[in-house]
């Protein structure tokens, strides 16, 4: 199971129901659908010349936020969503720095602040919901829940059947190493404000490359230091004995 969402911009009529459903499911205060993501706003819908663009956590296949979290408060669930445990969180906010999509927000004015972001309704689904509130509420199927592989196949089929209607790219298929949230668009993603200069491999590889070298480097340095100390120490000792004789 790899829960995923496909957003087809050509199907969206911009009603904002997805955002309202998100607010109701998460008990968040009322705000217009295009209000920026914040500590109390996990999902956004911006209409750019008739095209409704959703913004929420991308739920990366190999998420930077979960890899940098020192206590594992953010976790990639095997089911797909990136989940968050506020009780484990220490509040270092490294996740916010690391996220290539700048999604996680923080409740700065709270005395017990927390990271705020979409969790693909994983709590609700654990209680029996069959799909996230946003996709369940969408009247047109513009935001659709399903298996990642199935949705990817569906997206490519739509491009193949209507090459005139879509740009030939599924955003999220490879961006940042792949994300659970996928997009189809009739115009270039760059023009819509999507981040298009991201790398196409997973971000955690960058830090792991350095971290995984530490044991070797430290062992070598340790052996070197002990060796140096032994040689120098022994040389001093011999010199001392020689001067006593």
């Amino acid at each position: 199971m790899s829960a995923s969402i496909l957003n087809d911009l050509t199907l969206c009529v911009g009603c904002g129901t997805c955002v309202q459903a998100c607010r109701e499911a998460n008990g968040l205060p009322k705000a217009p659908p295009d209000a920026p993501l914040s500590g109390t706003h996990f999902s956004r819908l911006t209409v750019v010349d008739g095209l409704g663009v959703r913004q929420q956590c991308m739920h990366c296949v190999d998420p930077a936020c979960a890899s940098v979290c020192p206590v594992g408060a953010l976790k990639k669930s095997p089911a797909g969503p990136v989940t968050y445990d506020p009780d484990a969180c220490i509040g270092c906010r490294y996740c916010m720095v690391a996220c290539p999509f700048d999604v996680p927000r923080y409740t700065w004015s709270s005395q017990a602040p927390r990271v705020a972001k979409c969790t693909m309704c994983s709590e609700r689904m654990a209680k029996g919901a069959t799909q996230p509130a946003c996709t369940a509420a969408c009247p047109t199927g513009a935001t659709e829940f399903g298996e990642r592989d199935a949705l990817l196949a569906k997206a490519h089929l739509r491009i193949k059947e209507h090459p005139d209607r879509y740009v030939d790219h599924v955003y999220g298929e490879t961006e940042a190493g792949g994300t659970q949230i996928l997009y189809l668009s009739p115009v270039s993603f760059e023009a819509l404000g999507f981040r298009t200069k991201l790398q196409h491999s997973a971000y955690p590889e960058l830090t792991w490359y350095a971290l995984s070298k530490l044991p070797t480097v430290v062992s070598a340095a340790g052996v070197g230091l002990v060796g140096l100390w032994w040689i120098i120490h022994r040389r001093d000792k011999l010199a001392q004995e020689a001067s006593h004789v």
Binding site: C69, V71, C92, P113, L214
Partner: peptide
Amino acid sequence: FDLGKPWNGWHPLVMWNPHSVMFE
């Protein structure tokens, strides 16, 4: 001062994520 929840500051002792530079 900087941690949002300083009272959870001991968590890295028992909650491990060896892939995190911050943890190391």
